[in-house]
Every structure is written in C-alpha cells, then in structure tokens.
Amino acid sequence: MYKEAEVELLNKVRQGLTEQCDELPDVTLRKLDVMRSNALNASAPKQRFLGQGLLGIPFVPLSAALSAGVLGVALLMTQGSDIDIEKMVSDEDVLMSNEDMEFLENLELYEWLDAEYG
C-alpha cells in the first residue's frame, strides 16, 4: 500500500516537472537556443595555464622542480622506514601532470564512468 502510494507520488512528481518543461515560454526557449549555439561555437579547448611563475620561470617547470625537490627530501627522510615510496611516486605523478584541479577533483567520477561505460 505504502509502496503503491510512493509510486503514485513519484509519477506525480515526474508529471509535474515534465509539465514545467513543456510549458516554458517562447522567450526562454529562444534563450536556451542561443545559449546552446554559443556553447557549441565556443568549443575550442581552453589553452592550458602555462603562465610565468616565480621570477619569470614558467609555472610548470617550476612546480616540477619543486615537486622533485620535495620527493628527494622525502626519499632521504624515509630511508629505512616502512613508507610505501611507490605510492608516493604515483601521487607525485598525478600532482605533476598537466591536468587542472577540476580534473583531479572529478577523478572519482571518471573512474566510475570508466567502470560503468568504459
């Protein structure tokens, strides 16, 4: 009984939301058309950030050098300990790659997409 009522409620929810879509005014539909065209026309990929870093040294080589330095110090400090250096190196690879932070934030979603659709 409860299940049936819930299914009925969800049907009403879907119906209500779909009706809102169907009843959108022409002016909104025209704006959506324009936005879609604009998005498709602006599809050229953004240039990756390669701006100047500290003292005129480009950002990417600078961050790579700094990361290598940190990794070197970590290796020296962890000699003889049980820390998994291979895992650290793999994290370094991710951090030093050219991907932006958003990609890293969404990494879990991509892994899921890959598992689901890949």
Binding site: A39, A42, A44, P45, K46
Partner: peptide, 8 residues
C-alpha cells in the same frame, strides 16, 4: 554547464 560540457 553547457559551455563546460562542450569545452572540457
């Protein structure tokens, strides 16, 4: 959202 999907 459209722009980001298309571009990225």
């Amino acid at each position: 959202a459209m722009l980001k999907l298309v571009q990225k």
